[in-house]
């Protein structure tokens, strides 16, 4: 059967650490970094592999820093 897997790429230097993306992720994929970027913000990023590429985070990101990928994969039963 097919399964959807996804991933996000965050433009770390553009992220302002607002955390709006964190709460809208249905898979709780996104967390905030311990380190800060060049502007001093803790930036968002995936903390696990549960992303389904639903685009929720990218839609609400005010700075448009999130790129979303999604692919179907066949999984063996």
């Amino acid at each position: 059967m097919a399964k959807v897997v996804g991933d996000i790429a965050v433009n770390i230097e553009r992220c302002k650490g607002c955390e709006v993306c964190v709460g809208v992720c249905p898979q709780q994929v996104i967390g905030m970094s311990v380190e800060v970027n060049g502007k001093g913000y803790h930036y968002a990023g995936p903390v696990n592999d549960k992303c389904t590429g639903c685009e929720n985070c990218a839609l609400v990101c005010p700075d448009g820093c999130i790129t979303v990928y999604r692919m179907k994969v066949e999984v063996e039963q």
Binding site: G6, I66, M71
Partner: peptide, 24 residues
């Protein structure tokens, strides 16, 4: 068993579903 899918396999142009519009 699930195959292990790594990020490089997912982050390919053909799998791109959302990006910041270049009109910004």
């Amino acid at each position: 068993m699930e195959k292990t899918i790594n990020k490089e396999q997912i982050r390919k142009p053909e799998n791109l579903v959302y990006r910041r519009t270049p009109l910004l």
